[in-house]
Structures are given as structure tokens and as C-alpha cells.
């Protein structure tokens, strides 16, 4: 019985911890048009909060992130495309603001790293699994070989 109560309490605690993931979406921030709001969310989820850095501006509770969410919505409501809105922010904060960096001279290694790691892995497995070359004959064996050849 006690174990059951503890399990229920733990479950409730988990739900409480999970709740903040939805808490940021203040309904007063949302655009009246659901399609535009969905676009704004999609854009915001790809933009890094400059304060928390590992959160998107849609997930962050920082003041700057709130201002940026508002600006993204203003630009979406003004009829700009997703690319235009993102470019507007990149012009101010650089590619750092994008959670998904573009393929460029500075990022090709980042994008190529899974393929390079796979090739390196295949090379290592190939080299490690190759049979060893036979070890040179010992003196006793060479003597035996000589004797066999002399016969």
C-alpha cells in the first residue's frame, strides 16, 4: 500500500516536472490566425535563445526570448516567409541564432562528421579483422624445411 502511494506520488511529481514544457506558451502572445501562429511556433523552435543558448526562443522564459517571439509574430503577421523572418534574425545575431546551422565553409565538418565517423569505423574494423601474416619460421622449423627440401 505504501509502495503504491509512493508510486502515485512519484508519477504526479513527474507530471509536474513535465508541465513547464507547455507553460511558456502564454495564450496572450499567440496570433489570432492559427495557421500563422503554427508558422511562428515552427520558426521560433528553430531559433536559439541568446540568453539560455540551448533552448529555443519558443521554450525559453527569458525576457529577450519573449521579445523575439513577439517580433517573429509581427513579421509573420506582416506576411513574411519563414526564410525572411529567419534571415531578419540572422542579420542581427548571426548563424549562431539558428539551432540548425546551414551547410557552409565553417560547418561542413560538422555535417560531414557522421559519414566520416562511419568511414573511419569501417577502416578500423577492416584493419583489425585482417588475418595476421604468418610469423617467420623458427630455427627448428627452418632446419626441418631444409631437410625436407634436401630430400
Amino acid at each position: 500500500m505504501r509502495v503504491f502511494k509512493f508510486a502515485v506520488a512519484a508519477l504526479l511529481a513527474c507530471q509536474l516536472l513535465a508541465a513547464p514544457a507547455f507553460a511558456i506558451g502564454d495564450p496572450s502572445e499567440a496570433l489570432p490566425d492559427p495557421a500563422q501562429e503554427a508558422r511562428a511556433v515552427a520558426i521560433g523552435q528553430q531559433l536559439r535563445c541568446l540568453v539560455c543558448q540551448n533552448e529555443s526562443i519558443e521554450d525559453s522564459g527569458a525576457e529577450l526570448a519573449r521579445d523575439l517571439r513577439k517580433l517573429v509574430r509581427q513579421h509573420v503577421a506582416a506576411g513574411e516567409s519563414n526564410e525572411q523572418v529567419t534571415a531578419w534574425l540572422v542579420a542581427r545575431y548571426g548563424n549562431f541564432v539558428r539551432l540548425r546551422p546551414p551547410f557552409a565553409a565553417a560547418t561542413w565538418l560538422l555535417w560531414a562528421s557522421p559519414v566520416l565517423a562511419l568511414i573511419a569505423g569501417i577502416c578500423i574494423v577492416y584493419l583489425a579483422r585482417r588475418p595476421l601474416p604468418p610469423s617467420p619460421l623458427s630455427e627448428a622449423e627452418q632446419d626441418r624445411l631444409r631437410k625436407i627440401l634436401e630430400q
Binding site: 540568453v51 529577450l64 521579445d67 517580433l71 542581427r92 545575431y93 548571426g94
Partner: peptide, 13 residues
């Protein structure tokens, strides 16, 4: 007051 000039300058804080 609105912090918009700050964002135009790209300040992070």
C-alpha cells in the same frame, strides 16, 4: 524602453 534598438544592435543582454 521596448528594447527594439537593442535587438537591432544584436545585444544579448
Amino acid at each position: 524602453d521596448a528594447g527594439l534598438t537593442g535587438i537591432d544592435w544584436g545585444i544579448t543582454g
